[in-house]
Computed example of a mutant assay.
Amino acid sequence: MLFRVNWRVKVPSLYWTLMSFSTSHGAWKWADRLRIRRTTVDDYEGVVSVRSDINRGCDYIPGTYRQLLKHNTGYAGFIDHELVSFMFAAEIDNGCSVVIQSGRIKEEYEGRGIISAMKKHSFHDLSRTATRSVSVTSSPFACDILLQRNARLLCKMERLIFATSRHALKNTQRSPKVDQSSTIPADDAFLKNIFLSSEITSTIFPENRLVIRGTPYELVTSNIERILCLSDQILVSKDYGTGSANLISFGSTWRSNHTDVVFINLFGESVDDKIIFEHVHRHVAGKTSSCEDKIIMYIVCTKQQHEETVKRVLKKHSWELLVVHDLYAIEESYSWMN
């Protein structure tokens, strides 16, 4: 059954955002008891035990915590020696921004100001040059509250979640291949050329942001190394006539709770069924031989046309659409962190 998420529905992956806004009486006494420190690989068990019901049971932290720790700083919150909350933070955008993501808190500690205190701590602990923090939420309620607090909406996206089985995917991969000559892997040199071309970025990234796996990046070359490290594959398709890029996709995979998860971000002008299927097909390729029986795929796109094309194409290839919801990339100024 397909449904569109409403903020009134409890969505565990949004708890960390919503809990930042609690002003209930006595909430801050819990923040006063809170002790925060950076995490290491030895904190793995404690971190993954904070929540088990995130992202429809397909949380990426259990399968990627150690990898993400190489490119982010982890922060854990403790009350009376109990690990009750966690988040990642990292400097991006030439040191001008701190991205805060992967936040989670034990259910019994929600609404007590803990996540808000951790956001402030991580911001000041991590950077001496940043003037803003950036994050992504799927809650319109959280977005509205942040905007009332003088935050800025950077862009809005759609996230579609699909499911299929290994057997169905094998049949899909036997489908006729499209011409791959116009779809090639992208490397750091290609991304640098894209970022430095205002003509290309105005069509591929009209909001002047590249949002991948919960991180809204500015189009500056210092972000490229991090983007490459956190993407398993980047593909680009070019227009036959002009040779200009018209679709770029960033893909990553992880395994969680006996489920293989594929995450794809789509950017660009092309809404051609064959081209979009080629990108999806190549990001998923190989999953038929090593994956668990169940496969979940997240596709994030910035254009309504992409959403409709993706729905139409994947329906033909045995992918079941589970849910669609909005994502909001938000920027908060340094003043709120004081």
Score class of each variant (00 low, 15 high):
80 D>N: 15
239 D>G: 01
259 T>A: 01
175 S>W: 07
295 I>Q: 04
62 P>T: 05
129 T>R: 08
338 N>D: 14
17 T>R: 04
74 G>N: 03
239 D>Y: 08
134 V>R: 12
14 L>D: 13
141 F>A: 12
159 R>T: 13
15 Y>K: 10
64 T>C: 06
291 C>M: 09
338 N>Q: 14
292 E>F: 15
295 I>L: 09
132 R>Q: 15
46 G>Q: 13
141 F>Q: 08
70 K>N: 15
320 E>A: 12
86 F>Y: 14
120 K>W: 05
325 H>P: 07
84 V>Y: 06
170 K>V: 04
316 K>P: 05
325 H>W: 11
42 D>Q: 10
231 S>N: 03
56 R>K: 10
208 N>G: 06
317 H>L: 14
4 R>N: 11
307 E>R: 10
61 I>L: 03
231 S>G: 02
9 V>C: 06
260 D>R: 04
270 S>P: 06
220 V>C: 07
241 G>S: 13
150 N>M: 11
90 A>Q: 14
264 I>Y: 00
109 Y>C: 01
221 T>C: 12
258 H>Y: 13
278 E>L: 06
13 S>H: 06
102 S>Y: 08
162 F>W: 07
292 E>S: 14
96 C>Y: 10
90 A>P: 05
105 I>N: 04
106 K>V: 12
50 V>P: 04
142 A>K: 03
295 I>M: 05
262 V>F: 11
300 V>T: 13
210 L>Q: 00
130 A>P: 08
317 H>I: 10
111 G>I: 04
19 M>D: 11
162 F>H: 02
301 C>I: 05
156 K>V: 09
89 A>P: 08
266 L>S: 00
148 Q>S: 14
229 C>R: 13
331 E>F: 07
164 T>R: 03
63 G>I: 03
122 S>K: 01
313 V>M: 01
35 R>E: 13
26 G>M: 11
116 S>G: 10
147 L>Q: 08
83 L>V: 11
334 Y>W: 11
190 F>H: 09
219 L>C: 01
329 A>W: 07
68 L>K: 09
32 D>H: 12
88 F>G: 05
243 G>N: 11
292 E>Q: 11
194 I>K: 00
121 H>D: 04
104 R>H: 09
261 V>A: 01
305 Q>C: 12
139 S>L: 10
102 S>M: 08
292 E>A: 11
334 Y>L: 13
317 H>Y: 15
19 M>S: 09
193 N>D: 15
232 D>V: 05
275 I>H: 00
267 F>S: 00
221 T>Q: 07
220 V>S: 04
252 S>W: 08
28 W>P: 03
84 V>L: 09
73 T>C: 14
101 Q>R: 15
148 Q>M: 11
211 V>S: 00
145 I>C: 12
16 W>Y: 07
89 A>K: 07
183 T>P: 05
137 T>I: 08
267 F>T: 01
148 Q>D: 14
58 C>K: 03
201 T>L: 03
261 V>D: 02
